[in-house]
Design a binder for these strands. Structure first.
Lengths: 199, 199, 199, 199
DNA sequence: CATGAATGAGCCTTCATTCAT
DNA sequence: CATGAATGAAGGCTCATTCAT
């Protein structure tokens, strides 16, 4: 019985990636066994090795593919947008929207960096720094142009990213607020702060 | 050789907690083995069981002790502070300061909840919600009093906590900024946002 | 891409035998994987099975082919040689020369008998005994004719074979001694022993 | 059930070595599984690791212990023996006797060097060369003193060792010949060769 | 209290072999 | 004939945990 119905090559590889992502999300990298993964895609454990090199390589592939996709999508979202305020707006909108719809990928990306072997981790950290750098550049431009009051560029960069990325920890699609409402709230928080209306 | 230097009684239990915290911080709960831990405190693995019930119990103890300490310290910091603005200020100052000096505890608390067994996790989540609730209450008071412009109380609560807690991911004691500068930056971000200086 | 360069038909089978022999020599039968072997001949592992029945069958074929070739070559070397002394001389010369030039085959033959399945091993042992028997017969004739002083025929037979076959463990073609010098040394050892020269 | 009756510490380690030696002799290093070994000594596979570091380390220990014992025993056998002829005699007698009674150790030592990792193999080869050197020295002295006619010292050294060591391949304690008869035959082969009695 | 030795479950990975295409 | 993908059986090793001493 060499082949179970309907599972040629690339389809199987894609199924492994999908199931792997979900299992790592649910149990963590160390918590997911290749036996679990094999069962999830209907294979024997050893057969996974026709599609992945090692468990670690699968994690790295998932994580680096996400980083590449994320960065490309950001660049697309910022393309043609001019002026620091508009670009900051575009960044916030993009980042929140993207994260709301990729909860699983984002969670894995943030919580499993620790499980990457040193070289792999370094490669991902570099991609991550490149992404952060785009926000830092917007803040720097805005500050220089007198359009944004940025207390400290590195700290503000990290702060905004923490704030925005935090949505994945509580967001549920069927929740009280629509996606664009959530985006709007974060835009306001970042631009205006809480200091009191009436006063 | 019945006893290695410096490991008698309660002292040993404390040494285990300390070493356990650090090892979990460095390698994650699943990544830390009891053999590692035993070696770190100069015991044989089996001897740990004179001081801890199980590996899971150790994690739970570490995490819940931190939550208790954190909440108590917050209450002390807020005690006697009146008015939403002052209380928000006190919250921000406390939270950032506390997190800067408890990097390890905080990191473990955030990244290892996943490794808690369901009941244990639920207990910690309850403590965590109680902590968050104190911030939510401040925001609610402030909004009602017209002193704070809060777009949405739950989202803002989570957002502020994400923003403030984010400092542990990059902070290093020997870094460019002093603790009170970091506090000040976050206070400004939260209260005033980035919207442009002069204009 | 149905066919990699240079691997059609019987040529492929021969390439497999050659590469198999070398790999078994280098890593042992258990140490050689069919993946190694496939790669060495530019095939996928599954494709080997168009040319060999099983891994074990390949080993058996290599080993038994060697035994057949060896025995035939011995018979050719002894053909027409008359008299025990001359025949012993011919045997020693042949055995050493042949082993010097077939280091790989001989090594595999001696060290991998253990990896043969019982029936296969028995078949090879029979061939081997037939080969040994030719030497035993020469010794017996020589002893009976009073031309050779053989302390014990079976022990001497095994002893001579051990002595002569031992050359494969240290011989290197580029070494200090030429092939015929090595042959001469062994002839002297066997016929004359070490007992002291002059006096 | 922490401990099965009667198997404390060192006793278990010794049982593992003994069973390991026998299993490697019977199936080869690669052919022996740690599951086999564990079962042979009545343990779970993982429990072996209380006594050995790795499978490879067990092999190395067995092999190097044998080499040490062998060399020490040779030195004892040669101690006080004077003159090349007497020393050669003592060497032959010792080597054959020792090998007859340590069939298993010798076989493992000769056939499993290949399974040693490079560093370990190099260490054993050094011990082996030291052993061989003792014979080479005897031959050299004998040749220089004109008491032995040695065609070529290195080749003769290897040759004698091959001849003598060969006994382990066929010897069975219940066989036709007593130990001292086998020793005597080999002494005669080495000293006198086969050249004919009567003439 | 500490130790040493044991358990039992499980993990990642390898491998000879099969077979539809 | 070759390929790619699958099977099923192991294999060396790790680990939390237990317990007699």
């Amino acid at each position: 019985m060499a082949r179970t119905a309907g599972s040629h090559g690339a389809r199987t590889a894609e199924a492994i990636r999908r199931a792997g992502l979900r299992l790592i999300f649910e149990r963590g990298y160390e918590g997911m066994t290749l036996r679990d993964l094999a069962q999830a895609v209907g294979l024997q454990p050893g057969s996974l090795y026709n599609h992945i090199a090692t468990k670690q390589a699968l994690l790295f592939e998932l994580v680096s593919e996400h980083m590449r996709t994320l960065t490309d999508a950001l660049d697309a979202a910022l393309a043609g947008v001019e002026g620091p305020l508009a670009r900051l707006d575009a960044f916030v909108t993009f980042h929140v929207s993207y994260h709301l719809t990729r909860k699983v990928e984002v969670f894995v990306n943030n919580s499993e960096l620790r499980s990457l072997e040193p070289d792999n981790r370094e490669a991902i950290m570099a991609l991550r720094r490149a992404y952060e750098q785009r926000l830092a550049a917007i803040l720097a431009e805005g500050a220089q142009a007198g359009l944004l009051a940025v207390p400290d560029i590195p700290v503000t960069t990290y702060g905004i990213l923490s704030l925005l990325t935090g949505v994945v920890t509580w967001y549920r699609p069927e929740g009280r607020l629509a996606e664009d409402e959530i985006v709007a709230i974060h835009r306001r928080l970042i631009l205006d702060g809480l200091r009191g209306g009436g006063g």
